[in-house]
Design a protein around this nucleic acid. Sequence first.
DNA 1: ACAATAGTGTCTGTGAGACAGTATCGA
DNA 2: TCGATACTGTCTCACAGACACTATTGT
Lengths: 221, 221
Amino acid sequence: MEGYDSSQYEKLSLAVDLLVFTIEDDRLKLLMVERSEDPFAKMSALPGVFVGIKETLDEAAERGIEEETGLKDIYFEQLYTFGEVDRDPRMRIVSVAYMALVPIEKMNYHAGERTLSARLVDVEDLLSSDTKVAFDHKRIIAYARQRLANKVEYTGIAFHLVEEEFTLPKLQKVYEILLGKPLYKANFRKKIAPLIEETDFITSGEAHRPSRFYRLKKTEE
Amino acid sequence: MEGYDSSQYEKLSLAVDLLVFTIEDDRLKLLMVERSEDPFAKMSALPGVFVGIKETLDEAAERGIEEETGLKDIYFEQLYTFGEVDRDPRMRIVSVAYMALVPIEKMNYHAGERTLSARLVDVEDLLSSDTKVAFDHKRIIAYARQRLANKVEYTGIAFHLVEEEFTLPKLQKVYEILLGKPLYKANFRKKIAPLIEETDFITSGEAHRPSRFYRLKKTEE
DNA sequence: ACAATAGTGTCTGTGAGACAGTATCGA
DNA sequence: TCGATACTGTCTCACAGACACTATTGT
C-alpha cells in the first residue's frame, strides 16, 4: 500500500477497455473494432486506450469514447478491473472496463488509428457462438452483459438506451431485450409510471393507434 | 488500447486497498492501520499492498489480507478502482479496492511492517464524524459501506460475517446492523428460511430460552 | 414464579403476474 | 370496416410488514 516505497515494484500499464452498448433492430449491440496488428490481428476486440499519467480513469474512458464515437456526454460507468497476468501476451496490462450506453439514434463510430474497422456486433450472437475474440474480451463482454441485465431491474439504466423523449412501447422493448424475456404491457407501465412524465407529443404516420412520448421525471438517476 | 505501443505512455503504480469488515459488539467495524510514515503519518488508513508485476489483482488482495490478518480463505470481492490523479501526493497510484468479510470469532490482525498499529474502527462513527483519514480512503470506505448495505438485500453476503454455524438471532442482528434498521423476527425468519438448514445444536447456559444453530444450505452463494 | 429471549400464527396491504377488454390510427 | 398496435381495468397470488401469542431456559 501507500506506505511502501513503490520503486521496488515494477510498474505496469493500465488501460481502459470500453463497452459501448446500443440497441439496433431490436437487438443488443456492442461497438467492437477489428485489430490491425498482432497479437490477434484481424480479430474483434473492444476499443480502449491507455490511461495517461495525468489522467483519471473516468477521463481516460471519456477520451476513449470520444475517439471511437465522437460522442461526449453519454452515460458511462466503471464496470470492473481485470488483472490477470497473461491477459496480453506481450506484457502486463491491467484493464479497467467501462460500460457506456447510447441510443442508436445518436450512435456513431469509425475505425480508429490502429484498427481496420469498427462495427456493431450482436451481443447475444457473439456470446452464444464460439466466435473468438481478442484477449480476454469475451469474458469482459459476458460480465458486462450480466451486469446490464441486473441493473435494469433495480435502476433506471435502460433510459440511457432511448432518446430523451420516447414512447412506452419502445422503452418496453429495451427492457425486454435486456432482460431477455417478454413483459406484460399493463404491468410494465404501472411499474415505470412513477419514473416518467407525459409530453404533448404522439407518434403519427403509422397504420395503427399512435403512442404518446414520455420523458424521464427530473427526480431520477 | 492494446494495439498501442504502450512504451509511449508512462507507467504507473497499481495498489490494492483492503477493506476488511467484521462485526464486533453489535457494530460494523473495519480494519485500519496507523501510518508510520509521511504523508499522513499517524493517521488512519486502509491497509494495502502494491500489485506485483507477476501477480493478479485477486492474488495481491489475498496476499494483503494474509499479511494483515494471517487469514486465508476468507470471503472477498473486488469493489471499485479509484484513479484520481492526486490521490497520493507523492506519485500517481491507482488503487483497486477490495472488500473482505470475516466473522469476529476468526478475526485477527497486527501492525504491519510499515505501520504503527492496526485496529478495528467503528464504521458509522468514522463516517458520521469529521475524522480525517489518509488519502481518499474515507471516500472508499463510504463507497464500500454503501455497497455492503445494497448487497445484503439481494445476496447472502451477510453469511460471511457469521461463523459456519450460527443462530438466527445472531444472523438477524447482522442484517440489522448492515441495513441500519430493526427487522421483525417472524418476517426475517420466513425470508431466510429457504437459505438455511437446521443443525442438531442449540445454545445453552443463558438465562432464557436457547436458540438453535443453523447453517447455510449448500445451494447458495 | 419470573425475567428474558427464542420462536410461531396470522391478518393486512402492496405489488407483480396474467389476461381480457377498449381506443385510435391508416388503409 | 379491418388490421394493427396503443392503452386500461381488474383478478389473483405471493410476499413483506406488523403484531400478538406461545415456548423454554436459568435464577
